[in-house]
């Protein structure tokens, strides 16, 4: 792992009116790293993502990509080398899978309006290259043979993959995945995990926002926990998982403590505890609701 980070956010604060959505968040992403960003609803994860992708300009603090400050325009950020997927899939539904990925090639193609107009040899070469690269990416994410399918007709899991292929088509240095496994079944989640590992192999650093903590802890090299706009804990997954503050803030209280509370409550109420044998606290896995989704 190299010393200089690919992506670095230092003391990023974001204030909407009187509301501080992020305060002094710093984060470093190194080459070949998969970084997980977790936190309860409203913790500011998506706001932070939007600061990284140029949708928002941070009120204070800077985000740098390979030492350069990010521009404040999403298109320019993509050109600089950060690609993203969206929490709720945002493909171009009436374009084919191949066309979707080729739109991703847009910023890497040198084809002016005049070349487009006359379809000269340069146009044909550029077009053929973009097509070949896009087909390659479709293969890479496992959508071989579906290139001529309209995006809207693809099953849900394939749409997620297509979105990743489209993001990869921009030749990013950093890929930001906003809840890549939302709504997926365990098999699809496992496939997504393998895909993200494969993406890391190609030299792209990855940031993942997820609610599925099991997924995050089994995937990431480094996990940061945001709570109420502040960076609570960061470190290796094992460290973060065991940190009591994280468990309390994000996962709620540990099951045995909750169980104890339930028992106590039951005793106080003067009845035998119903919780003794059946009480199981499932891992918290909630969907990121409207509060953050509406920021965009």
């Amino acid at each position: 792992m190299t010393a200089t980070p690919v992506l670095s956010a230092s003391n990023v604060s974001m204030v909407f009116g009187g509301l501080t959505a992020l305060s002094e968040v710093s984060l470093q992403l190194h080459e070949g790293q998969i970084l997980g960003l977790i936190g309860p609803n409203g913790a500011g994860k998506t706001t932070f993502f939007n600061c990284l992708t140029g949708l928002y300009t941070p009120t204070r603090g800077t985000v740098t990509l390979r030492g350069r400050t990010l521009p404040s325009d999403p298109a320019a950020v993509t050109v600089a080398g950060i690609a993203r997927t969206f929490q709720n899939i945002r493909l171009f539904p009436s374009m084919t899978a191949l066309e979707n990925v080729m739109v991703g090639r847009h910023s890497r193609m040198k084809q002016g309006p005049l070349a487009s107009l006359f379809h000269g040899p340069a146009y044909r070469k550029g077009e053929a290259d973009a097509r070949a690269r896009s087909l390659e990416l479709l293969d890479f994410v496992g959508l071989t043979g579906l290139d001529d399918e309209l995006a809207r007709n693809l099953p849900y899991g394939d749409q997620r993959r297509l979105e990743i292929a489209r993001a990869l088509a921009t030749d990013p240095a950093v890929l930001l995945l906003d809840e890549p496994t939302a709504g997926m079944n365990p098999q699809e989640t496992e496939a997504a995990r393998q895909l993200i590992f494969a993406i890391r192999e190609t030299g792209v650093a990855v940031v993942v926002i997820e609610h599925d903590t099991k997924f995050i802890f089994s995937l990431c090299d480094h996990v940061s926990v945001l709570v109420q706009g502040q960076l609570l804990v960061e470190g290796a997954p094992e460290v973060v998982r065991g940190d009591p503050r994280v468990i309390e803030a994000y996962l709620g209280k540990p099951p045995d403590e909750v169980e104890a509370e339930v028992r106590q409550y039951a005793e106080e109420a003067g009845r035998p505890s119903a919780a003794e044998s059946t009480m199981v606290i499932p891992p918290v896995r909630e969907r990121d609701g409207g509060s953050e989704g509406g920021n965009r």
Binding site: D73, T78, F92, S94, M95, V103, H106, S107, R166, T170
Partner: peptide
């Protein structure tokens, strides 16, 4: 393709550069 992408979803088109 850029035009069609803008028609379909302008924000996503911007995010594609």
């Amino acid at each position: 393709r850029a035009w069609i992408a803008i028609r379909e979803d302008e924000d996503a088109a911007r995010a594609m550069g």
